[in-house]
Simulated assay, not measured.
Amino acid sequence: MMLFPPNLKKNDLILIISPAGAVSPCQLSYGISYLHDFGFRTEEGQYLYHQEGPFAGTDKERASDLQWALDHTEAKAIWMARGGYGTIKCLPKVSWERFVQHPKWIIGFSDITVLHQKLYQLDIPSIHAPMITQFQEAKAPVDQTINLLKGERNSITWKTSTISLPKEIVGQLIGGNLSIIQSLRGTSLDLDYEDKILFIEDVDEYHYHIDRMVENLSYSGILDKINTLIVGSFTMIREGNPPMPYSLEDNLKRLSQYHNFHLILDAPIGHIEENHPIILGSNIKLSIEDQKVTLNYMD
């Protein structure tokens, strides 16, 4: 059974760290002020504004901020500053023992999928949502994320181009960034896919690379285990020369027939302004009518 962290209320403390890419104070000032306007307090990691190459400080510094945030007994949430790359380098250097005793919400996406998968192993839900650097262009999704933190379970409705879906699908929601999911295959952070609803999204990848990752899901048997695949935004897909002879959607439709899983396309989640938040690890109900999908939480 998943252990949900406590809901947030006014004056609760949110910690801000960046276990991956480097950030500057000006990139975070709007988002931090926005949280203050909602009545939350914030604290920043000691090394938040450090930089080493593309990273927010050395591996040791980023891990130190992550450990500080995980161990914090007063804070109710850890909101990631940005994604990029580097979160996986922090994992061997931190302990989750105190966090499990005082669980808090972890919020972010993209490279933060590493932490989402770790939390899945710990049976603690987390929120796939915009990060602090994105608050200005993603106000509506940020407001929805804050509602989730306060215990208000927003539904999400979108049109899907997939056909032949049942009227209702129920299951546990897992997933995140496809490249990160692929990179963690065969590790202790790999997911249990049996009868799950798997969500995937990605950004700035070659079409053939996405195709190769999808074929891994197929050939490894994962697509035989899941009951549903939700496909979010795949933005800035790059084509090789010559380009792929079919689209990602057409290939997924073919695979859904071969492996017999439900395919739901066009979810407004991922590297887009309309990046709706979702609670990974939660049990959800998908209601389908007239090619519209509504996601509701059951927890």
Results as ranks from 00 to 15, higher is better:
G21W: 01
L173Y: 06
I278E: 02
F261Y: 08
S287H: 06
Q134H: 15
D224F: 06
P6V: 02
G240V: 12
H259A: 06
E289V: 11
L191A: 01
L198K: 02
Y47S: 07
L70T: 01
A77P: 01
P245F: 07
E201H: 15
Y34P: 05
E74R: 03
I163L: 14
S95W: 10
I278N: 03
F199C: 11
I180N: 02
A22H: 07
M1H: 07
H276S: 13
H259Y: 12
E44S: 14
Q257N: 14
K285F: 05
Y47R: 02
V142L: 06
R153W: 06
A20P: 04
Y120C: 08
R62S: 06
Y246L: 12
A63G: 08
K285E: 09
P54T: 05
L252D: 06
T73D: 14
A81P: 00
I288T: 09
I226M: 07
R41H: 08
I112W: 01
K93W: 12
D211F: 13
L165V: 09
F55A: 10
G57Q: 01
Q101W: 09
A267M: 03
I169D: 08
I180E: 04
A77T: 00
Y34C: 02
L119M: 05
R82N: 14
S164K: 14
D37G: 12
I269S: 06
T294E: 08
I222M: 07
